[in-house]
């Protein structure tokens, strides 16, 4: 019971500290200094319609590289922890024919939608992270529909390593050909608002999408294996 009282005191102190933050909250009236710079100069400097994409891929590109690295390390940790000992074998049941037939229709459409989302990341809401997650959910449907099939490990690890390598390589190309690491003006900026515009942003974001998608598929694969 003493533990419960301690928890209540801790939460009460937390509420006491954070209550002024909520009660005296003043809504933002204008953009902060950094955001003003991004909104004003973004369209000319980067050429992307979606400012969130412009910030993720170019202005804060190094953060995104670090984030992908964290994702990779977490996936490697999951695989390491789960693969230490042999797990007991369980009989795999085959799935229903409704799921199998539905997968044959839906899987190409889901993967096509994922590719659409990350190639149009600089024009519409969406981008590499969202598209990668959509592709991972499509492959999850495939895993659920045919649990007996040997999953193509080689293809996934090949996609993962090539996309990660290509991402860093494009960043280094920016260092040589343009102003700095992950600069997108190594390709011509093109006409504002077209599919082939904004320099290297569609290319970089597609590579991020493939990388994120294959990492998430790896997490699902490690968790499913038994």
């Amino acid at each position: 019971m003493g533990k419960r009282i301690f928890v209540i005191i801790t939460l009460a102190l937390f509420v006491y500290i954070s209550l002024p933050l909520v009660l005296d909250f003043i809504p933002t009236q204008q953009l902060s200094y950094v955001s003003q710079k991004y909104v004003q100069d973004g369209p000319e400097e980067v050429g992307a319609q979606n400012l969130v994409t412009a910030i993720i891929v170019t202005y804060r590109g190094l953060d995104t590289l670090g984030e992908v690295a964290v994702l990779f390390i977490a996936t490697a940790g999951i695989g390491f922890i789960l693969s230490r000992k042999k797990w007991r074998k369980r009989k795999k049941r085959s799935s229903s024919s409704i799921l199998q037939t539905g997968t044959q229709v839906l899987l190409p459409l889901i993967i096509m939608f994922g590719i659409y989302v990350f190639t149009n990341g600089h024009l519409t809401p969406g981008g590499g992270f969202q598209g990668g997650v959509i592709i991972a959910s499509g492959i999850l449907v495939y895993i659920l529909a045919s649990p007996k099939n040997k999953f193509k490990d080689f293809l996934i690890s090949l996609t993962e390593s090539i996309s990660g390598f290509g991402y860093v390589l494009l960043g280094l190309l920016g260092l040589i050909l343009a102003a700095g690491f992950l600069d997108n003006s190594i390709l011509p900026l093109g006409k504002f608002g077209r599919l082939f515009s904004a320099g290297a942003i569609p290319l970089i974001y597609s590579l991020i999408g493939l990388k994120v998608g294959s990492e998430l598929v790896n997490i699902l694969k490690y968790l499913r294996r038994d």
Partner: peptide
């Protein structure tokens, strides 16, 4: 655009 969009950061 400065008067029409929310903060992207």
């Amino acid at each position: 655009a400065l008067q029409e969009v929310v903060d992207p950061v």
